[in-house]
Design a protein around this nucleic acid. Sequence first.
RNA 1: GGCCCCUUCGACUAAUGGUUAGGUCACCACCCUUUCACGGUGGCUGCACGGGUUCGAGUCCCGUAGGGGUCACCA
Length: 507
Amino acid sequence: MESNAPLVSHYSSTLYFWDTRNSLLNTRYSMVRVRFAPSPTGFVHVGSLRTALYNYLFARHHGGVNILRIEDTDRTRLVEGAVDGLYRTMRWAGVTFDEGPIEGGKYGPYVQSERTDLYRKYSDELVTSGNAYPCFCTSERLDLVRKSQQATGTPPMYDRLCRNLTTTEVSARIAAGEPHVIRLRVPIGETVHFHDLVRGNIEFDSRTIDDQVLLKSDGFPTYHLANIVDDHLMEITHVIRGEEWVSSTPKHILLYQAFGWEPPKFAHLPLLLNADRSKLSKRQGDVAVEDYKDKGYLPEALINFLALLGWNPSAFQEIFTIEELIRDFDLERVNKAGAIFNREKLDWVNAEYIRKMTPEYLALLVRPILETRGYFATDDYLVSVVRLMQERARTLPDFVDFASYFYVAPTEYDEKYKAKHWNDAAKENLRELLPLFQAVESWSHDSLEGIVRVFAESKSLSAGKLIHPIRLAVTGRGMGPGLFELLTLIGKQESLLRIEHCVANLA
RNA sequence: GGCCCCUUCGACUAAUGGUUAGGUCACCACCCUUUCACGGUGGCUGCACGGGUUCGAGUCCCGUAGGGGUCACCA
């Protein structure tokens, strides 16, 4: 019949062992060790970044160790260069690791495909102890079983055909070279429970837990096996991961019990959501960290924004330095409900950061974009443009795309603005103003403003009647920095050229 | 469908049995102003619903509804 005895006896016999070790080596085990364990399937999802960030903040807050582990046990989904990309993204975001494939560490290797012998060994151990069993079912049979279960409305689970094969039959079939997997022997009639640091106690009836595949027929482990073997061997103290893992956690608990290992503490993070409250997905917008980098968001801003999606220390502060995030971070203040990724708020946070940075630093970040657009500017000039645009820009490309007239004369003129401010009277005014501009000796903010205001007064006009047409002629736009700042930067010759051109040609 | 989780303004959230339910983004109005932006002032909307417990419930309990996650030899 069913043999679930090994689980129970294993667990209780090793509990004593762990309790003793825990008290004897208390200092060692009080050291926080967390891991970020992505599978290298290409880009880094912003949700993954947030998970990585929370692990990082938790580790730093507690003076613990942050570990990167690559979970590449699915050979069919390997993506060339994904690990490099992952590191590039993490470095950009400022999330650092103390142990990992590049950092090294005494718990390595940190790439699961280099640890397959280990998983095999532990899988064998589970089979020997009766907590796992070989299964020879083909995927075709499994599909059929699943289909009939769906048809009858029963929960789709493995029907446990191979669970009670005799040892002689098992040996024979293995000797015959029959492909097989190793499955977890889930005990019957138990309640599996665990305490989640975010959600509290969570319980599962073991009859709802599938006899999960632990070792695939290609000899590679599944996530479930590799994950707990590594978490144990790497002495992970806290597993901080996305909510989508809650329903597989009981399988992990069962594995810890089967091995007689003390499970780590779990904290399941709320999901990042689309506007319709479904799991944040590619179909409804940008999900790759790279997308946000490319669109001109600053890493500090993205991190700040992401940190506050699902966690909040007080709600009386919106902008946090990374040091403040580390100081304040606390798993107990992580929310339970999913959070919608709100792009407008990100824009605002980004704008806040742009206003805080030095123009020199921003200019460095803007230059590549400038060159992509085919514009030219000296370093000094670019810094000046940044200074004028700084409180108007929300993202990095704004310094180029909303300010193109600083680099090249306008070829298009804003229709609405033109309709409002460009007419024969305006042109006549500019025609008369032009010689005064030409005659000016110091092309400076104050002298230009003085000329315009005196001229306007002499003609009994409001200064706006001159300012708006000049802005249109010089920039083509109805928005931007103060006119006299802008004229000063663009320079006398170029400014006059543009005004003359429009007076002569713009209808 | 089974199992698990969740539910405060449109969005992110604060509140740890006693508040006119607070802040931020977005939105609207006004002020500042040469435009846009910044800044300032004000406004708009919220405790999913129904029962309990309690002198008192957004906060505790039960139920309902709604939403989400998960049910692979993927992680």
